[in-house]
């Protein structure tokens, strides 16, 4: 993939609902965008060509909680091409309730200075309450 866009790469702009089909070309370290209908889109497409990033969301195991999986996310957009590796590295993680929304589960993922954050509260399991499973 890296090599592909060195010459030219097609990118659908998702900066707005227009969804422009653009072509990005690299010439002597500068990026040229064709087909973007606005400056915001051009910026987005350049970023997407140079360093595509996404917020990654997944779940990890949680003990003693009222649910079995804790939803987590990256605190900032994470390099797109390492998402699979990241999720694999996260999946063995295990935490214990109680957990608060916003709590950092693991910091500095892959040395990117991006944290893994809990996205919901999980209180201690209420033994008296019957759960659905």
């Amino acid at each position: 993939m890296e090599n592909q866009f060195r010459e030219s790469k097609e990118i659908i702009c998702t900066a707005c609902p227009m969804g422009c089909h653009t072509v990005v070309e690299r010439e002597n370290n500068t990026l040229l965008v064709r087909g973007a209908r606005c400056p915001r889109g051009e910026r987005y497409v350049k970023e997407e060509a140079d360093d595509p990033r996404r917020i990654v969301a997944t779940t990890i195991k949680i003990q003693n909680g009222n649910i079995r999986r804790l939803p987590v996310k990256t605190s900032r957009p994470f390099p797109r091409d390492q998402i699979r590796a990241l999720v694999q590295a996260i999946s063995p993680l295990e935490v214990s309730a109680p957990v608060k929304r916003g709590e950092i589960i693991k910091s500095n993922l892959f040395g990117e200075n991006i944290d893994l954050v809990a996205t919901r509260d999980v209180p201690l399991k209420d033994k008296k309450k019957i759960t659905h499973y």
């Binding site: 917020i55 969301a57 939803p71 996310k73 929304r101 996205t119 919901r120 509260d121």
Partner: peptide, 10 residues
């Protein structure tokens, strides 16, 4: 700001 579903509900 861009939130996840659980955060929004929270």
């Amino acid at each position: 700001e861009e939130l996840t579903g659980p955060e929004y509900a929270g």
